[in-house]
Structures are given as structure tokens and as C-alpha cells.
Design a protein around this nucleic acid. Sequence first.
DNA 1: CCCCCCCC
Length: 572
Amino acid sequence: MSVKLTQGAIEVKAISSFSPAFQNICEFPTAKEGHTRYRLNLSDGVHCLSCFLLATHLNHLREAELLEPNCVCVLKKTVSSSLASRRVVAVLDLDVLLTAAETGGKIGNPAQLTGERKTSGGRSSLTKAPGMASLTGSGLGSPPPAPSWTIRARVTVKSHIRTWSNSRGEGKFFSFDVVDQSGEIRILAFNKQVDKFFPRLEQNQVYLISNGSLKVANKQFTSLNNDYEIALSPMSRIAPCHDGRGVPSLRCLFVPIAQLEDKEPDTILDVIGVCEEAEDAVHITSKAGEQLTKRALTLIDCSGKTVTLTLWGEQAQMFDASRHPVVAIKGARLSTFDGRSLSALCSTTLTVDPDIPEASALRAWSVTRPPALVCVILSRVRPVGVGGFHAAGVPTLSLVRVWVQAEDFSCVATVIASYKENCLYQACPGESCYKKVCQLDDGRYRCDKCGTDYPNFEYRFMLPVSARVNLADFGHSVWATCFQEAAETLLGISADQLGHLKETDEKAFNKVFRKIQYTTHVFRSRVKLQRYDDEYRLKVTVMEVLPVDHQAYCRRLLDNILRHARNVFALA
DNA sequence: CCCCCCCC
């Protein structure tokens, strides 16, 4: 097997416009704040250049020894730029065409180029700017070179102007977050730059931004996926850019709700979930005597876990909780209240029904899941012991919740247990009464509801069944009660006949129950949340037991989905 | 150079 290197490609500036094949000569790992980045020295057979920076999401290639010296790879996606008069090519995607063993050594005798340029300019992107700074070696101790990049990025959130006064002086400040296709970064403005830039910037607009200086970001105060921030200087320029094509609107790194309990308190993080419940906005007075408006939302995600998110001020008032929207929250603070909960900050971005795959997945999940899904409310889990962590991560108190739109639902479930004791009761024989009767001393049966004594009674069912519901990504067992018709269908015997067996043939009676164990049916059920003192319990009643006819079940499921979708999207 | 962000 042989492959041709793309001779001459190393010298081409517009390397990102095609997919050259290069041989890997060697790589240099660089460690920065715990992250390893690999710089590659690549050869086109004539020249080699060590300006190729492997995107960290490709580190596994190197670490799995797929990208070893002498292998040949094709660069499928790159972004070129030059910062500080030095060329850098970020490698975002590559395929290894030939392994080192297959090439059998270095191809040709390539001459090493330095990648330095006399002129520089062009457009940079957000992930590369920091990479550049580390590659030029202009770290602490030497003055940074004059920055010459321009980024085209969208403002996702803009802070208000804040003034400060402390031992280090006083001044005013605002910041804004921007995204482009490569990443995100926070941009800071102090004092004169506040006056100059604050009025020009609008959320969601795209700008060309140049001439700022990079500084290391304090991760304690941001959820942005960038180790750096840009501070604007008097030389900085910001111009509106009317071509926003390809510039995304928001970048989030969502933490599943179930994982919030593993995160450090006070972390700033991103969460997405369906707004299951929303309190009304309420006015409160803070400890500092400030009048505040707050509103608590309950978010739920595919894990079935929920978390409380508190919104403040305008965000609390403006939020429309009807129709249970998907809520993406970027940069909320994790607190330890009630186990774990979230609080929005001024810099928090809240997006309702965002046009992102995570939202579609949640939406699909929320309309198809059975309404009786049992949820542990993470926010109600009280920490045990010190430090706010749960003993062995086990929730000590959990409540069950019913999906707020609870109503009839159908699911396929398998019987795993049933109670034969007391599954039959002696019911009033009066028409459609069904009230339990008491035997009198004279052998007759009294119905308190009808106020009548009868010579006989009718056996009727009140059959508790534990059924396991299995859907794509979860399994729950639920105790449900089958009344007359449902129980007769399930057991395949009338209450009268079973009552007769109970009195005459215990073996045959027991067999009826053994026979239904591990059988699978469609259960059309009704669910209610009932409160017993301090405890909530789900009350599930089986309305109808149907054979598992997959075609019919799918139709029913589809009806369910459509019905829920109509509720959710308020379609006609 | 900010870093406050509330209430149960």
C-alpha cells in the first residue's frame, strides 16, 4: 500500500481549503494547566513545519498511538491563522491513512521550515487565540507581541456596568461573552473602554473584534469553556458584522441533572431540562434589605431527576412556563440548598426551546415517557453528615412525583408479582353498587351504602399487581390495582369462579396467580398522586388489560405522542 | 483592574 504526500502543500497559506496528506515527523506535547496539547511537525515530502496544533478532542489519536511518528495522515479540517507573526494551523479533523509500520520510515528528505512570517493578519478564531499565545513562547517575563487577529463572533450575553472601589483602586467594568464556530470567550472592558464599547454592543449581534489582550480566566466565575479572557484596550476595535452566517448562537456543556450532586458547590455550569413546574414569581426582601423578585422552576431531564432553578428579577417575571418548555441554562451557580439546586446569576443565559439537538431529544423524551414515571427529586434530597455530601451518594429521602400532565396512559408492562390475599372482596349484589358488605349474625349480608340486607354477595376483584414497565432507557416497577374487568382479563377467570376455587380448591386457586407471573400486557392505567400524612404515594389503577398487539400498541403510543405534542406545542 | 448575584 502506498500513498502520495501532497508535495508543496506545507507552503500553501490557504491550507484549510483542501485536504493535504502529510507525514508525521514527530510531535511535541505541551502541558498547560493540566491539559496536554500536541504540536505536530508534519512533512509534505519536501518541507516540514512544526506549526500544526492538534485539537484536544483528537488527543486520543496520539494517546492510542495511532498518530505515531512516520504515519501518514490526511488533514480533513484545519483552521489557519497567524498570531504574533507566526503561522499556526489548528488540526480539527484528520484520518490516519498509513501507520508508521506501513510507511516503513521517513519519506524523502524534507527541509524544516520555521513558519515565521514578515506580515501577519487575517481572521482568527476563539479556540486558537489562546493556543497562539502559548505557542509563541511569549508567556510571563517577555512582553506580549502586538496582537493582530480579528475574530468574528456573536455576543451571547452582555453584563450591566458595574463600579467598584477597593484597596486596589476604583473604576467601572462590564463584560460580554462571545461565540464563534470554534469556541467561546469572555471579553472584558474597563473604564474608558466601558464608555466606548458598552453602547455599541447588542446581545445576539455579530461583531468583528480585534486588538485585545489575553488574560487567564478565573474559572471560579465562569462556565465558559475557555482558559482565557480578552481584555479590551484603547487600541481595540469592534465593528458590527452583518454577515453572521455560520456563527452559532450559544455553546453549552450541559451537565446531566443526575450528575449535579457530584459537582462542587458554587460551580458555574450549564443545564438543560424540561420545565416541569414553575412557581409564581414572588417578591422578597434580601438580608441586605433589597426588594427582589424570584421564581423557582423545576427542571427534569431524561434521567428522571429534577432540580430547582431560581430565576431573579426580570428573568423571573418574563419566563413563560406554560406548555412545559425546554429550558437551556448557561452559567448558573450550583448551590447546596436542598441537596443541590441552581441559581441564576446576572451573567446567566436562559434560552427557551433552543434549536439544538439536546432540546429535541428532551422534547421527544418528555412526550413519550409514561406519565407515571417515578422521579427522585434531587432538590428534596437532604444531605447527611458534614460537608453537604450524601453518605455514599445515596439519597436519604426521596419523594415520588407524578408528571404534572398525569392522566390515562398506556404502557407495555410485565407482571412480576401479585397479591392473592384479599384480592377478592364480598360486594353488594345490588345493581352497580359494588360496596363491600358485612356478614350479619343471621347469615345475611348488609350493604351500608344501599342500607339493605341481602341473602347473598358477589365476589369482586381488588387485585394489587406489581408490573415492571420497560421502555427504551429505563425500567420501573409500579404497584397498581386492578378492579373487576381488568383483573378478570388479566387472570383469565371471573371473580365468581375464582371465589369458588378459593373455597374449594386451593391448588387451582394458586395456579391462577402463578400463571400470570412474567406475562406481558398492555396496561391502560390512571395515575393519581395521593398524600398520606407527610408522604406522597402514587395510586395507579389499571383500567384495561389488553394483549400486546404491537401494531395496536404503536398506534396507541402514537396517539399519545400526538396528544402530548398538541398540549406541548398548542397545535390545532 | 471584576469576581456582587440575593430567598428559602
